[in-house]
Design a protein around this nucleic acid. Structure first.
Length: 417
RNA sequence: GGAGGGGUGGCCGAGCGGUCAAUGGCAGCAGACUGUAAAUCUGCCGACGAAAGUCUACGUAAGUUCAAAUCUUACCCCCUCCA
């Protein structure tokens, strides 16, 4: 199907579209540039991770097509916690934590969106600005009367919480109402007529659309994206060392790149559509690629996403490190700045155990952890497995730098001096 | 307020006086095979220790016992039903 608005066409082609209210109207509405659309971020953590990328790239696309993304941070709603489909109540954060997280999230978004004051410049708003001031009785009279409990407990997101061993507190139940109120507020004050969100947000979004229709008699639109799972059904963005963070302080660009380089075969094309600027037509041609040749596409994916998230300059270094780590060359080990280093004086080689180096160098969490890895033959020194003697062989002491590998993907440089 | 059910390792979930650092599943790590993929197979998966072993852990705190995740008491939290 073809849409009138370029945004919807591309959003659909790239896999951002799950469902929406009144699609035809929204399409028409989006043919004019400079429209406002908002998306809410929960600010329960200081940094965003790969799991947040769909909404981020969706807003990015919205901006690319000349519209104005509104980033709503939930300074107010985070004090409640969205219960939708969750089986644990979110921890409630203090004001200090929230303002700290807010700053972190802002800086995470900078590479993806342009915050300028032109027609399509993104803006950031905080719903604490209006939610914190609400007065209970006036709010109930003014807004609460438009909500039907009968209707709300029919939503899947709510039903899921009304089962055995789970319950929905009144506090959490209000989340939906407040999110609807956000939409109402943004519409009436900024003429923002679209709300984006994940498919699990559908109920909450529809609530807002209905509130505005009932109270003001105006039509606004909801747009949801599919939730991103890997082909094996896992939530995206989790690795051994935790979430794949977008901030380079929490995850180095090198590790970020590696994450994309190692995605499942079945996911590459999908991710290429979602998280790169590679043209839709070009990606279509790659869809038939199979087997080993997919590796080239994974590299393309990694390059593109990393360029957007961390800038072009980081790429050169990443490629050098990758060649050093996965290639055979040991010549320029010393120049690999992205790999953690451990300094050792040559005099101490004899009485330093590799176990200590692994723990102090941060590649293992405990001595037991290191020993297990050694016993399982998972440790190499300059590409040679270490078997019985957990010491650095003396014949290597003439080198300046040694490469200690824990498994294939984790490395530590031992600098001798 | 009353009655009942429950809180176990990252998650799910057994165990219900010693053989329990705790069955099993998922997740994770390493090895083999490969393509820095997946699947499969093998090993590992609390801390310290070369090891023997020691310590810390089954909601919290006391207690009974030679011995407690398992029994008792109090407290906290969660769920269901009734008021």
């Amino acid at each position: 199907m073809r849409y009138k608005s370029s945004f919807l066409n591309e959003a659909k082609a790239r896999g951002f579209f799950y469902q929406s209210t009144n699609l035809a109207e929204m399409d028409e509405f989006l043919t004019t540039k400079g429209r406002l659309g908002y998306l809410g971020f929960d600010i329960t953590a200081q940094s965003l991770h790969v799991g947040h990328l769909i909404p981020i790239f969706l807003l990015r696309l919205f901006q690319k097509h000349g519209h104005k993304p509104v980033v709503l941070v939930g300074g107010g709603t985070t004090k409640i916690g969205d219960p939708s489909f969750k089986n644990t109540t979110r921890p409630i954060l203090t004001n200090e934590e929230i303002s700290l997280n807010l700053e972190g999230i802002k800086s995470c978004l900078l590479p993806f969106l342009t915050f300028e004051s032109d027609e399509s410049g993104a803006v950031m708003v905080n719903n604490a600005d209006w939610l914190d001031k609400l007065e209970y009785i006036p709010f109930l009279q003014d807004i609460g009367k438009y909500f039907s409990i009968n209707r709300m407990i029919g939503f899947e997101s709510v039903k899921a919480k009304l089962t055995v061993n789970d319950s929905l507190s009144f506090l959490e139940f209000n989340y939906m109402i407040l999110q609807a109120y956000d939409f109402y507020k943004l519409y009436s004050e900024k003429n923002c007529r679209i709300q984006f969100g994940g498919q699990d947000q559908w109920g909450n979004i529809v609530c807002g659309v209905e509130l505005i229709k009932k109270k003001l008699g105006k039509e606004v639109f909801g747009f949801t994206n599919p939730l991103l799972t890997t082909s094996s059904g896992q939530k995206m963005g989790k690795t051994a060392r935790g979430a794949v963070w977008l901030s380079k302080d929490m995850l180095s660009p090198y590790d970020f790149w590696q994450y994309w380089r190692n995605v499942d075969d079945a996911d590459v094309i999908k991710l290429l559509y979602l998280f790169t600027d590679v043209e839709v037509e070009k990606i279509k041609k790659m869809e038939s690629v199979k087997g080993e040749e997919l590796n080239a596409i994974k590299k393309l994916l990694a390059d593109e996403v990393t360029t957007i998230a961390h800038g072009k300059d980081s790429l050169k270094e990443i490629h050098r490190v990758t060649a050093g780590v996965f290639g055979d060359s040991e010549s320029d080990l010393a120049s690999l700045t992205s790999i953690p280093r451990y300094h050792l004086t040559k005099a101490n080689i004899e009485n330093t155990s590799i176990i200590d180096i692994m723990v102090e160098g941060g590649v293992c969490t405990s001595r037991g952890d290191a020993k297990r890895l050694l016993r399982g033959n998972g440790v190499c020194l300059n590409n040679k497995a270490i078997n019985e003697d957990y010491r650095i062989p003396l014949n290597l002491s003439t080198n300046d730098v040694l490469k200690l590998s824990c498994g294939k993907k984790k490395h530590l440089l031992i600098v001798l001096n």
